[in-house]
Amino acid sequence: MGDFSQAFQIAFNLLWSMDVELYSIVYLSLKVSISAVLISCALGFLIGAALTVFRFPGRRVLLILFNALMGLPPVVVGLMVYMVLSRSGPLGVLGLLYTPTAMIIAQTVLITPLVAALSAQVLQELHHEYDEFFRSLQLSGREKLMTLLWEGRFGLVTVGLAGFGRAISEVGAVMIVGGNINHVTRIMTTAIALETSKGTLSLALALGIILIAISLLVNTSVALVRSKAKEAIYA
């Protein structure tokens, strides 16, 4: 019990003293996850909108597929990306394995289906409301798509935040493709796993506190966006 309280004390000291190692891990985590979320949103919003606006053979199958892929196991994504980026894989020549770029790729693969499926849900509801209006204006498919993305902006921000929540808390995929190399690919989740297994709980605890704070911040942001949308009756 005494060890635990001591660990907490050291953890708070690390946080308070702006420990360079601790914050470099936090910085890399945010960099990787924010990059992955931005790429996933760019892809996922467009996929979600396209699945909403356009009617083509296989559309339903794709919707089911993206919904199913929302629950993709991170370690499986890690394994797939590892095979693609490993020296004998198709993109091995790029030498990306065990770099932050590989981690961004893995997280992007992991959360793009989530963003696409949730975006489609948000936008389908809007499309139902606007369909006849759009058709009466004879909007082209592209115009419908762009208008829906703007009209659904509040809902899509919460989708993006949900994606970020999944990315920042993910450990399996980034561990496999990043390798958890100190000062290179070590991020919060992989560092917590490593430090805990080593028995050095203080750094793991400090990172855990930051991770929980980020999670709270994301959830608060979601609530704020929702209330702002409701307040303006934009929702």
Binding site: E129, Y130, E132, F133, S136, L137, Q138, T147, E151, F154, Y234, A235
Partner: peptide
């Protein structure tokens, strides 16, 4: 569409019973 550009008088427009408002 062509007429919309040529004359500004493009098409039939329908105003719905429950007006559809953009956000």
């Amino acid at each position: 569409r062509k007429l919309a550009q040529d004359t500004g008088a493009p098409c039939m427009s329908l105003v719905f019973q429950n007006p559809v408002m953009l956000r």
